[in-house]
Design a protein around this nucleic acid. Sequence first.
DNA 1: ATAATAATAGGAATGATTACTATTTATTTT
DNA 2: AAAATAAATAGTAATCATTCCTATTATTAT
Lengths: 124, 124
Amino acid sequence: MRFSHQRQKVREIVYKTNSHPTADWVFTEAKKSIPNISLGTVYRNLKQLEKSGYIKTIYDGNIARYDWKTEPHNHLKCKNCGDLIDIVFLDESIHPKIKKDFKFNVDKVEMFIIGTCKKHAKHS
Amino acid sequence: MRFSHQRQKVREIVYKTNSHPTADWVFTEAKKSIPNISLGTVYRNLKQLEKSGYIKTIYDGNIARYDWKTEPHNHLKCKNCGDLIDIVFLDESIHPKIKKDFKFNVDKVEMFIIGTCKKHAKHS
DNA sequence: ATAATAATAGGAATGATTACTATTTATTTT
DNA sequence: AAAATAAATAGTAATCATTCCTATTATTAT
C-alpha cells in the first residue's frame, strides 16, 4: 500500500476524535483541507485502514462508525443523545467460558449497552 | 391496530423460523401465499410487530434481522457460515453494576459474539 | 349496509455504501 | 532526472436496504 495524502488525512481525522464518526462526517472534515476529495475515497481508505488494523468499524444500528481505539472495549449508547461512550466491561477472559459452554471459538465480542447516560437521566 | 391478513402472515413467518430472517426473506416467504404483498407492507408490519412487543430487531452488521424470541438473550455469530445462534450468557443482573460503575441506566444489552461455530472449527 | 379510516400495493424517493473508469500521482526502473 | 508502472483518486453511476407517498381496498363501528 503506498502513500496518499487522502489516506493520511482520513486516518488523522479518525485519530483526532472520540466521537466515533461516520464516513460522511469524516468526508466533511476532510474537505476542509482537501476540497475535492471524494466520498468514495473516504470509504475506500476507511476500509483499508480497518484491514491494516489502524481503526475499527462499529455498527450503530444500520450505520457504520469508526473508532481509532482498537483494543477490545464496549460501548454505552444513550438513546437520548445518541452518544457512544467507551467503557471496558468485558474482556477476553470470557472467551474460554464461551468456548467451553457453547463449543464456539471467539474472535471478538461486540456489545452495545443501550440506555440513558447521566446527562439525560430524569433522576437517580 | 386492526386486523390484516398481511400482518398475520408476516408474524407467522417470523414465528416459524429460528433463522433470524431479514425483511427480504420474510417478503419472499410471504409472497408464496399472498403473491401481491408488497415489500413496504412487510417492513411496515415488522416495525409494528416490534412496537407491539411481538418481535425484536437485531442489527447484524448493517442489515436488520428479526427474532420472535423477545426475552433478553445474546447471539453467537459464525463468521464462516453467517449463522446466528441464540445463547443466554448475560442477563439483567449486570444492570446494577453498570449503573454503579458508569452512572448509566441500562435498558437493554445487545451483544454479538463473533467467531467460529463448532461446524466450522478447523480443530479443537 | 354505510361511513369512517386503517392498511395495502406499487412505485418513487432516500441514504448509505460500493462499483466503474478515465485521469492523476507515488514509486520503481532506467 | 525522465520514463515506465501501477496504485490511488475524482466524479459519477449503480446497488441495496429501507422509507415515503398516494390512490385504492378492506376492516370495523354504527
